[in-house]
Structures are given as structure tokens and as C-alpha cells.
């Protein structure tokens, strides 16, 4: 806090001012307030003061303006200044409370940097996915076709080892093909060309259940849900999130018949959906890992899949400004939560 008189002289400065600007109070006393301003701002500041009508009402100098402070050591830093008239003293004596907003600026820069990083990584991913779908597909097709042709023509005509080798090669190409397809799905997730709109989230859930019909029938799974809210996002993407989460809940079932329940509540301007199941559960140390692309906790012999479902959910929700997380205990089912911002 600094008190400045009509002649722009510093009448009083507090401890914070000393620390912020690096001067002792003695040094500042009766100095022109100019010492705290970079040379380039001094004229503008004088002009500003000369034209400011007295009485000075409380106003924020920092709002919408780049106000910069000058330290004793010559370094500059961003500040926000609010002014108020000091009553009962000189006519134009003002109290300036000066706040160092370096941290706030840095946070804003950090956010902007994160956003631009996200958009760069999206671009890089799209580029990679394009390469994967076209350029990698060609050699893969050659390897896959010719190992399959070998299998078709020469199975049982070489020796037993040869048959095993061919099978491994064929199996490898099939998994590679699935991975490429899944990578493409992932790169497209959340980049839907469909616009966001308001709709009953129950519609998206029903769509997901329709697509899961075969799995539900096969396992005898029971899926229930509460009243669900109207949300604002891309309906096909929400259906995809429901489908992947409920699909997992059914897929990773325990000995008992799968029970899945979907609920939603509003919390801090978000809709928080929860999908709980009575499946095999997840060890808490894997809570982060399961959302990464192609990360799997089980061998493909036990549970099929490439490990794309949760990564796609996370990507869709991220692109919508939402979040996804899990609560679980090994052997005691899981609850997947996701939050969508209300708009």
C-alpha cells in the first residue's frame, strides 16, 4: 500500500511495498511515484493523473490495463493497482494498493500453454493416425496376406514348428490390424463433426444399451438406471462413453451375474454420472493407468480387447471439458464416475 499526495510524492509505503519493490521505506519517502514505474509508463501515468477528476473514486487500474511495476534492481513485474481517495487529508491524496500478479499471469500463461499443447498433441495424433491408416496399412496388408496365404497353402505340409511359426505370424498381423483400427478410433474420438446440443442423457444410455444387446443377453446382465438429466454435448459421444463403461462393467464380471447401475447428480456446475458394477474390481494402483491407450491389466487370453475403451472415454470427456475417474476395490466391483460441465 502506498499513499501518494497531490504532487505525486510518496507519503507512506508499507512493508509489503518495500518487499515488492526492493526499496526501504526511507528511500521511498517523498520520492516521486515515478520511481516505481518503468520509464516508458511515467509520462502516461502523469497524464492519467492530471486528467483524473477528483475525487478519485475507487477504480481498478489493473483491470484491462497492463500495469507494470519497476523494482529497485531495475526488473519489472506485472501489478494490479486499485486506487481510493484518502478522505480528510489533501484533496488529491490517494491510497494505491498494489498487488503483484506475476503468479496469476503465470497461471494464465500456463493454462494457455496447456491448451495449445493439447491442440498440438491432437494435431500430431491426427497426423500419426493418418499415416497409420494409409502408409502403415500397405505393408501390413502384405505381411498379413502372405502369412495367411502361407497358412492356407502350406499348413501341415512343412513341419510342426513351421505351423506354429505361421500361426504366431498370422496372429500378430491380426492384432496389429486391430491396434491400427483402434488407434484411428481413438484419434477421432471427441473430434466429432456433430455439434453439441441439449438432449436427455437417457436417450444416449438407451442407444448404448441397444448396441450392447448381445453382451447383455449373453451374460444375463441386469442394467438399471435412475432419472438422468438433460445435458449439453454430442449425443453420439455420450452414447459411446456409456457403451464403453457399461460394456466394461459387463465384460469384467465376477462369478455372479453382472449388475450395473447408472445414476447422476449435479455438483459444482457439473453433471456427475456414476456407473457402478459388481464385477472383478480394480486395484487402486492401476487407477491412472487404465485410462491410457493400449494399457491392459489382463492377458488377452482372459479378457479380449486392445485397451482402447477407457482411453476413448477419457479423450471424449476431455474434449468436452469433462473428467473421468474410478473408485474400486479388487474383488468388490467398480464405480466409474464422469463429469460433464453444465452449459
Amino acid at each position: 500500500m502506498i499513499i501518494v499526495n497531490e504532487a505525486s510524492q510518496i507519503e507512506l509505503a508499507n512493508l509489503q511495498t518495500e518487499q515488492m519493490f526492493g526499496y526501504s521505506r526511507k528511500e521511498l519517502l517523498h520520492q516521486s511515484v515515478d520511481v516505481l514505474l518503468p520509464a516508458g509508463l511515467r509520462a502516461a501515468h502523469r497524464d492519467h493523473r492530471a486528467h483524473a477528476e477528483a475525487p478519485v473514486n475507487r477504480r481498478e487500474m489493473g483491470v484491462g490495463m497492463n500495469v507494470v511495476g519497476l523494482r529497485k534492481d531495475g526488473t519489472e513485474f506485472p501489478v494490479e493497482v486499485s486506487l481510493s481517495q484518502l478522505e480528510g487529508v489533501g484533496e488529491r491524496t490517494v491510497i494505491a494498493s498494489v498487488r503483484d500478479i506475476t503468479g496469476r499471469r503465470e497461471a494464465a500463461f500456463e493454462r494457455a500453454r496447456e491448451m495449445s499443447e493439447l491442440s498440438h498433441s491432437n494435431e500430431a495424433l491426427e497426423q500419426f493416425a493418418h499415416i497409420a491408416s494409409h502408409d502403415l496399412q500397405e505393408p501390413l496388408r502384405m505381411v498379413a496376406s502372405y502369412t495367411q496365404l502361407l497358412a492356407k497353402r502350406y499348413r501341415g505340409r512343412l513341419d510342426a514348428d513351421a505351423d506354429v511359426f505361421i500361426d504366431f505370424a498370422v496372429d500378430g498381423t491380426q492384432r496389429m490390424k486391430q491396434l491400427i483400427q483402434d488407434l484411428l478410433l481413438y484419434s477421432r474420438a471427441g473430434k466429432g463433426t456433430a455439434p453439441t446440443h441439449e438432449f436427455a442423457s437417457e436417450e444416449a444410455l438407451r442407444e448404448a444399451l441397444k448396441n450392447l444387446g448381445a453382451a447383455i443377453e449373453e451374460t444375463g446382465a441386469v442394467v438399471t438406471y435412475d432419472r438422468l438429466p438433460v445435458v449439453n454435448c454430442v449425443s453420439s459421444e455420450l452414447a459411446q462413453v456409456f457403451q464403453n463403461l457399461i460394456g466394461n462393467a459387463i465384460h469384467y464380471h465376477s462369478e455372479s451375474v453382472p449388475h450395473v447401475h447408472v445414476s447422476a447428480l449435479s455438483k459444482n456446475w457439473e453433471w456427475e454420472f456414476s456407473i457402478s458394477d459388481n464385477g472383478i474390481g480394480i486395484d487402486p494402483r492401476y487407477f491412472e493407468r487404465i485410462f491410457l491407450i493400449f494399457q491392459r491389466l489382463h492377458g488377452s487370453a482372459d479378457y479380449k480387447g486392445t485397451g482402447i475403451g477407457l482411453a476413448i472415454c477419457k479423450r471424449i470427456l476431455q474434449q468436452q471439458g469433462g473428467r473421468i475417474w474410478v473408485e474400486s476395490e479388487l474383488g468388490h466391483g467398480s464405480i466409474f464416475h464422469f463429469a460433464l460441465p453444465m452449459r
Binding site: Q137, L140, R141, A144, S145, Q148, T173, Q174, K177
Partner: peptide, 9 residues
Amino acid sequence: SKPVDLEGF
């Protein structure tokens, strides 16, 4: 479009 696997082709 050429299918990726032999059977498709």
C-alpha cells in the same frame, strides 16, 4: 477398397 486380410481380398 482392398481388404487388409487375405480372406477379405
